[in-house]
Design a binder for these strands. Structure first.
Lengths: 143, 143
DNA sequence: TTTGGTAGTTTCTTTTAGTAACTTGCTTTA
DNA sequence: TAAAGCAAGTTACTAAAAGAAACTACCAAA
C-alpha cells in the first residue's frame, strides 16, 4: 500500500489551515471555544463513532439493537453517548408510546454530514491499517 | 451557515462504504481487527489530535514546548500519547545527546497524511461549531 | 555545593468507564 | 391473581484511566 506523496506545499497548506483555526488562541492562555476540545472530541471517541456508523448503515435503530451491534458497549455508556449525540444535533430520538415502549434513534441530516467526515477518516484508517500494525510490531520488537 | 444538502444518494453511498468496511464482521461476535477500535481510536482522542495539530504547525517540537502548547495536558499523558503516536508511525522521536538532553518530535510523512484527514474533520467542526453550540443550548433548555 | 535545565517517571487522588442488578409500565401466560 | 416478560433505560458498585504534584537522572554553570 503506497502512501500518497507528501509535498512541502501540502505541509505549508496544512500549517496555514491550522494557523487559521488556532491563530486567535494565545498558547499561554486556556483555550475558550476550541473546536477540537469542545466540539469534535465529543463525537470522535470510539463509541460515538461506532454508534454513528451503525446509524449510517441502518435507517433507524432501537436502543437494544444498537447495543447488540455496537459490540461491547454497556447500556450506561450507550445511554450517555446517545444523549450527547442528540444534544449536539447529530441524531434524533423518537418515542413511540406503544407497549412495550419503542424508541428509535436516527441520524439527522447534520449527523449525516458529519458521518461523511468520519467515513473519510475511517477509510483512511482501513486503507493503512496493515501498515500501522506493522509499525506497531516493529516498534514493540525494538522497545 | 447553511448545511450542505444531504441526498438519498449520498446516504446510500455512505451505507455502502460502511457495509464494505464492516461487512465481513459478524455483529454477534467480537470484532477482530476493527479499523475504528484498533487503529483510528488510538489517534483520534482529544490529546492526540491536539499533539498532531501542533506538530503539523511547527516543523518539530520538544517535550516541554509541546506540553506548553497543548494547554492543560499533563506530562504523564503527553508522554503516553507520544509513545502511541510514535508506535503507530505518525511521529518520529529523535534524541540529541547534548547537555541538557534534547528530544525532538516531528510528523512523519505518514503522520502528515493522517493529519490531512484530521484537518478535514477539524475544519468541519469549526465551520459548524456555532450551530452545535446552539443545538446544545436548545437541548439543555428543553431537558 | 547549590541551582538550573530537559525529559520524562512515580505516586497519589479524582474522574470516567464497565458490570450487573434494578426500575417502570404494561402484557401475556400459568 | 400472581408470575414472568419485554423495552429502555437507571443505579450502585468496581476497575481502569486521567490529572496533579513531586521526584529522578543527567550534567553544567555559578
Amino acid at each position: 500500500m503506497e502512501l500518497e506523496t507528501i509535498t512541502e506545499n501540502q505541509k505549508v497548506k496544512a500549517a496555514k489551515k491550522i494557523k487559521k483555526m488556532f491563530g486567535h488562541i494565545d498558547y499561554r492562555n486556556p483555550p475558550e471555544v476550541c473546536p477540537i476540545r469542545h466540539i469534535m472530541s465529543l463525537a470522535t471517541d470510539k463509541w460515538s463513532i461506532l454508534i454513528l456508523l451503525n446509524l449510517g448503515f441502518f435507517p433507524s435503530l432501537r436502543f437494544n439493537r444498537l447495543k447488540r451491534y455496537v459490540y461491547g458497549i454497556s447500556a450506561k455508556v450507550l445511554s450517555e453517548r446517545l444523549k450527547n449525540l442528540e444534544m449536539d444535533g447529530y441524531i434524533s430520538r423518537t418515542i413511540y408510546p406503544e407497549v412495550p415502549i419503542r424508541v428509535e434513534y436516527e441520524l439527522t441530516d447534520f449527523g449525516q454530514s458529519f458521518l461523511m467526515r468520519i467515513l473519510d477518516m475511517a477509510e483512511w484508517s482501513e486503507k493503512y491499517s496493515e501498515r500501522i500494525i506493522e509499525n506497531r510490531q516493529r516498534y514493540l520488537s525494538k522497545n
